[in-house]
Design a protein around this nucleic acid. Structure first.
Lengths: 224, 224
DNA sequence: TATTTTATAGAGCGATGCTCTTGTATTAGA
DNA sequence: TCTAATACAAGAGCATCGCTCTATAAAATA
């Protein structure tokens, strides 16, 4: 329906400018020229609206990353990885409130519905595809490929292993997971203000920091 | 004052059980048997109370980590690091709402006052001290110690370098920063639910995952 | 004792999420 | 074409919130 889209658009704008905590159904209703009770015909609750925005944000981030990555030659695994990392960070800087919504503190009592799972996995999927190509091309660190590992860790990473499709040693999967965590941790730290008084924020300083992180992540997997 | 302490205690309990978003001055007042307007004699605003709790949480985490680390022999750098990491994670699991408060999404419009800086730096300081001892003992990776680095990165990490006291190569500082980010990123990912449907959560599985992270962080710095 | 300070209560403002009832168009069926 | 069902919106209302203002009781001070 038309109105549903209008509500979503207004909500998106409110989220981007004020952030999720101050997103109010009444304000959106006011803006669209209807009563607060009227929007409840289209939105089940505030949490419901939040879910729309969460899915929306995941998809926006996923699309931005995929688009950027697709612009790099398939053989250039390093370039694809670096481009993806930068796209993620750039999207986050451009959409800080959206980032906080999906990667920040969970709302107590709120349980993410199933329809958020697929959008949430777009970036991990992208990183996974890059990893798989690196493995296929034999460009992953030898010591990692051959390493035997705690069986508990094996089972812990079973869901990830299956998602990858091809057989990848657990040590490699774990290293990829660490890169994934490191990437999102670094972006969150920067956005959530943990670098205040710790890292310089002059022109280019944060970029340089992040770029070196990317290089180190590549090193850790062994892609060279 | 007595009442101030009572308010803080009640607030702490509310935070731990319901989380920060639903922390209400009125509820605290009700619980202490006074009017909502009465608490405003002791608390300037809700944000003010939040700041108390933030400082409190940072100190609680800092104290727990320091206590754990102090129980390890000084020469055992690996043990000190591992113990600190585990203490941080354990504290987070035991105090999820407090963790979300200090490491989750920043409240839009809220600016952390200066009195949060020192408590916030307790864990980084602890990690820094371990790093310094490792450097002094010559136990940091050679390749890292000798590496030359982008001057922009140099200046970006200047605040950190000064905080460490002794001369540590930028490449090492950056690596330590990555470990710091990785540690807090990993804990946040686990607590904020990003591992749902991705990492198994059977008995010991998450522990095994984290333990290997710790080992890899040690490897990356080169402590062995 | 008189006065000033301190601590509390109470009422009130504007805002929120959400529900329930009422009213009105538009559409579908007889 | 008339009627009945349906879709949609408005309005009032409830409980809650942060916060302010004023009036009042108690305690400390002069």
């Amino acid at each position: 329906m038309e109105i549903t889209a209008e509500i979503l658009t207004a909500a998106r704008r409110h989220l981007a400018s004020e952030g999720a905590p101050s997103l109010s159904l009444r304000a959106i209703a006011r803006e669209l020229g209807m009563t607060s009770s009227a929007v409840y015909r289209y939105v089940a609750s505030r949490d419901d609206l939040l879910t729309w925005l969460i899915v929306d944000a995941y998809n926006s981030l996923g699309a931005a990353s995929e688009l950027a990555e697709r612009g790099v030659e398939r053989e250039d695994v390093i370039g694809r990885f670096r481009t993806t990392c930068r796209a993620v960070r750039q999207w986050a800087i451009s959409n800080p409130h959206e980032w906080a919504l999906i990667y920040g503190s969970p709302v107590p009592g709120y349980v993410a519905p199933a329809d958020t799972i697929v959008p949430a996995s777009r970036v991990p999927q992208l990183l996974g595809a890059i990893l798989v190509d690196a493995v296929r091309a034999g460009r992953v660190r030898e010591s990692l490929m051959g390493e035997r590992v705690d069986p508990t860790l094996d089972s812990s990473l079973a869901p990830l292993r299956e998602a990858l499709g091809i057989a990848v040693p657990t040590a490699v999967i774990h290293q990829a997971l660490m890169v994934w965590v490191g990437l999102f941790g670094a972006v969150s730290f920067e956005l959530f203000g943990q670098f205040q008084n710790v890292i310089g924020d002059g022109p280019g300083e944060r970029d340089a920091l992040f770029d070196r992180c990317v290089r180190r992540w590549l090193d850790e997997i062994g892609i060279a």
